[in-house]
Design a protein around this nucleic acid. Structure first.
Length: 581
RNA sequence: GGUCCGGUAGUGUAGCGGUUAUCAUGCCUCCCUGUCACGGAGGAGAUCGUGGGUUCGAGUCCCAUCCGGACCGCCA
């Protein structure tokens, strides 16, 4: 069954050769005495010709039959420029049908008719589509580049446990019941965080892993319950050392995959990113920055603005140039509804045309409108959007609007890749729900040295050595310099509201490890799927996962999750709670 | 936990109170030596997601439920 060539391989220079090909029937075009078949495999498509004069008869082939064919390579009189192999065809002398196939539920081609749920149910057929294969092949290339790159820098790949210990902070764990210890559970790792730090304590110095991670949270178009993180940790480093490794690695990936030479990555402080873009993962492919216009309205008569300012809120503006004539009243209504999702009560807007119109044109003074115009450098046909609310709501709503409008008005260059390190994240964020400060990152993140004194008494102004790398509006990776000092770690646990007892119960082994000479260390976790999504120009994470789950975390193909035999539950000592009790 | 959108031949869709349930594609049969989105003729193919209700009459309206999708919350 040895093929001599793949279906993407034969060229004009192969004319005259005897070849053997294998593959699937992608398409057939039949006449009385001749049959053309597009034979497909992972490498491409080759047209093969079944000629009655040569074979005596024409076989009855259907789409997706699996064939082995032998024949001679001929030059085509009229080439097909759409195929790499379009200048030749193979005239069949012998063939064998290796397998037949039912009619597929959707067309096996890039432009398929099947919708996503159907394609997921028959993922093994969906995987035959070149457009899906390309993405998995790219994913393999990227992990290959990463492995080679890190190995050259003395990193070693270590596998850490999948069955671990549940820690109730953070994302919800996937739990695995223990058969030997009834009532006890393993947790699947949300990330190999503790283990990789212990590898540093263990003296491994430079570690990485292509790590599967699991989070039992609700999904999104860019989130799966299980995903892959390129997990990296280094000893005896500071931020700049880690940035250098990651930056070189990204440059290597973009050079090899996209033939792009990336410039040096920007560095933006978290507070500046929030101020300018309303987001800690800003899309830097376009401008349209947020501007604080509170001072213009400090003596305003407009009660809504006035009240917000009096209650400690602020007013920010977002300007989009030369679009006023393209937005109808209905469009503005849609945008007003859009920002409500983010908690904004309203979206104010002004259209600067021959006259100034818009939702708040009548309630603002001429002076205010002119001041806005001057401060925001507004020209004819520009639109100013404003939201007055708390800092958090203004940032979230106006930040999201900024991205939406840029997309709607095609202001984003799809071929550009704008990286930036976001640094100096706050140590805590305030949880409205719990009415207290909670950890903004995992509890092993080091505070800024100069902020150690603020850990307990001034949480609002305490910053950490955490950083993200953002790319085109996505958080590509997250990392930090870790705490390596037992006392500081204990202090941070305390600051986070973990009693010494709780801390010992949950992380005792970890704290103890720090008493035996833990080196300074830090690292990152890179979201592999997101990187591949960006590289392959898709906004759907399912496209870059071989067997993805739906938005409700089910596998339409296998039917997972499913109920299990009562005997299995008994072995585990588990009884199910039914709705009745 | 919440908001919104969708579910009609194999597939993608039209229909929005009375139709023989639309169109395209796929499928099957026949015709066609050069197609490469082949072409031509004909044919089969739909418990309109499921269960209730309103109505003389329900893909069509209402309620519930299941499934899929997007988003908010969530994702230390």
């Amino acid at each position: 069954m040895n093929r001599t060539h793949t279906n993407g391989e034969l060229r004009l220079s192969d004319v005259g050769k005897e070849v053997k090909l294998v593959g699937w029937v992608a398409k057939k075009r039949k006449f009385r005495n001749i049959l053309f078949v597009d034979l497909r495999d992972r490498y491409g498509i080759t047209q093969v010709v079944f000629d009655e004069e040569i074979l005596g008869s024409i076989p009855d082939l259907r789409n997706e039959y699996v064939l082995e064919v032998s024949g001679v390579v001929l030059k085509k009189e009229v080439a097909n420029p759409k195929l790499k192999t379009g200048e030749i065809e193979v005239s069949i002398r012998e063939f064998e049908i290796l397998n037949t196939a039912k009619t597929t539920p959707f067309m096996i081609q890039d432009e398929t008719d099947g919708l996503e749920d159907l394609r997921l149910e028959y993922r093994y057929l969906d995987l035959r589509r070149p457009i899906i294969q390309e993405k998995l092949i790219m994913r393999d290339r990227v992990t290959g580049i990463i492995r080679n790159f890190l190995h050259e820098l003395n990193f070693i790949e270590v596998e850490t446990p999948i069955l671990g210990k549940s820690t109730p902070e953070g994302a919800r764990d996937y739990l695995v019941p223990s058969r030997l210890y009834h009532g006890n559970f393993y947790a699947l790792p949300q990330s190999p965080q503790i283990f990789k730090q212990l590898l540093m304590v263990g003296g491994l110095d430079r570690y990485f892993q292509v790590a599967r991670c699991f989070r039992d949270e609700d999904l999104r178009a860019d989130r799966q319950p299980e995903f892959t993180q390129i997990d990296i940790e280094m000893s005896f480093v500071e931020e700049k050392d880690i940035f250098e490794v990651v930056e070189k690695m990204m440059k290597k990936i973009f050079k090899d995959i996209k033939s792009i030479d990336l410039p040096k990555f920007k560095v933006i402080k978290y507070v500046d990113a929030m101020e300018r873009y309303g987001s800690d993962k800003p899309d830097l492919r376009f401008g349209n920055e947020l501007l604080d216009v509170s001072t213009i309205f400090k003596n305003t008569e407009f009660t809504i603005f006035k009240n917000v300012l009096e209650n400690g809120g602020l007013i920010k503006a977002l300007v989009f140039k030369d679009i006023a004539d393209q937005l109808s009243k209905k469009d503005f209504e849609k945008l007003q509804n859009y920002v409500k999702k983010y908690g904004a009560k309203a979206l104010a807007y002004l259209k600067y045309q021959d006259e100034i119109s818009g939702s708040i044109a009548k309630v603002l003074s001429d002076n205010e409108k002119e001041e806005l115009k001057a401060k925001l450098n507004i020209g004819n046909n520009d639109v100013v959007f404003m939201i007055a609310d708390s800092y958090k709501v203004v940032s979230a709503a106006l930040g999201a609007l900024r991205v939406k409008l840029a997309k709607d008005f095609n202001l984003i260059n799809q071929d550009s890749y704008e990286f930036a390190w976001i640094v100096d994240f706050p140590m805590y964020e305030y949880s409205e729900e719990e009415q207290r400060f909670v950890a903004a990152h995992h509890p092993f993140t080091s505070p800024k040295i100069e902020d150690i004194d603020k850990l307990i008494d001034d949480k609002a102004n305490c910053y950490s050595r955490a950083y993200d790398l953002v790319l085109n509006g996505y958080e590509l990776l997250s990392g930090s310099i870790r705490i390596h000092n037992q006392e500081l770690q204990a202090k941070v646990f305390e600051a986070l509201g973990l009693s010494l007892e709780e801390a010992k119960d949950k992380f005792g082994f970890f704290l103890e490890a720090f008493e035996y000479g833990a080196p300074p260390h830090g690292g990152v976790g890179i979201g592999l799927e997101r990187l591949i999504m960006i590289l392959s120009n898709t906004d759907n994470i399912k496209d870059v996962v071989a067997f993805p789950k739906t938005a409700s975390a089910s596998d339409l193909m296998s039917g997972a999750p499913n109920d299990v035999d009562i005997k299995q539950l008994k072995d585990l000592g588990i009884a199910l709670i039914t709705k009745e009790n």
